[in-house]
């Protein structure tokens, strides 16, 4: 019973953090800050998938959303410029 409460509370907290990070990433004018907010959202989602007892999803999601996705975005930002006008 207590474990269910802990899981639901952690899921709610990390979902709230991911929503806040997503809104900030959409609103940011500095694209590098948007990448960091995206990484923050990915960390919150990692905790959510861990709570949902899906370690295979965590293994793939952490690699893609914390590792490879910022790599591609930073390469792109280096080409197109950092500030959105």
């Amino acid at each position: 019973m207590m474990a269910v409460d802990i899981v639901m509370g952690l899921l709610a907290a990390s979902a709230l953090i991911s929503v806040i990070a997503t809104v900030l990433a959409v609103q940011a004018r500095d694209l590098l800050k948007a990448v960091i907010f995206s990484a923050l959202q990915s960390v919150a989602y990692t905790l959510m998938y861990f709570m949902l007892m899906a370690p295979d999803i965590v293994l793939v999601y952490a690699a893609v959303a914390v590792g490879i996705y910022p790599l591609i975005l930073i390469l792109l930002i280096k080409k197109v410029g950092r500030y959105e006008v």
Binding site: M53, V66, G67
Partner: peptide
């Protein structure tokens, strides 16, 4: 069985 999640998280944040 859920230990490798921590290893993967640490490795990829270093990449960031």
């Amino acid at each position: 069985i859920m230990i490798p999640c921590a290893i993967v998280l640490v490795l990829w944040v270093y990449a960031l």
